[in-house]
Amino acid sequence: MAQLKNEMKFEFISKSANESFARATVAAFVAQLDPTISEVADIKTAISEAVTNCIVHAYKNGLGTIYISVKIFENGQVIIKIRDKGCGIENISQAMEPLYTTGGAERAGLGFAVMQSFMDNIKVTSKLEKGTTITLTKNIIPRVTKNGQ
């Protein structure tokens, strides 16, 4: 197991205005690993998808709390957990199918497909009426040989 470099946790209520807050906060923390612009964009997009799922699906009947924790490791690995105490997912593999959505005409059904494509690994655990945890992993490639120093 790689050595832990830093860790943080934050929580907020499931208002859609917090989607940008959540992705910007995670991006600011991960900046310690000196990621490329493209790596930051990948992480921001995945966080935005996960948080939107909590708002649109988990807490569709009202407001709840969304919990995010981020661990970064010396080898460049980032592990992000996004947790809710919402309705849970009945059929995880169906929910993860591209284009499958219960979100109506304006939702593309691509949330999980984007998370899978933009991150190195994704794990979903869910319990009906208890909530869902998404664990996202991304390996930031260390830029060790900058200017040969």
């Binding site: 997009t45 935005s48 939107t52 939702r107 593309a108 691509l110 949330g111 984007v114």
Partner: peptide
């Protein structure tokens, strides 16, 4: 910045 909501916006 755009997430899959942008795709939904175009499709809609």
């Amino acid at each position: 910045f755009m997430d899959s909501s942008g795709i939904g916006l175009i499709m809609g």
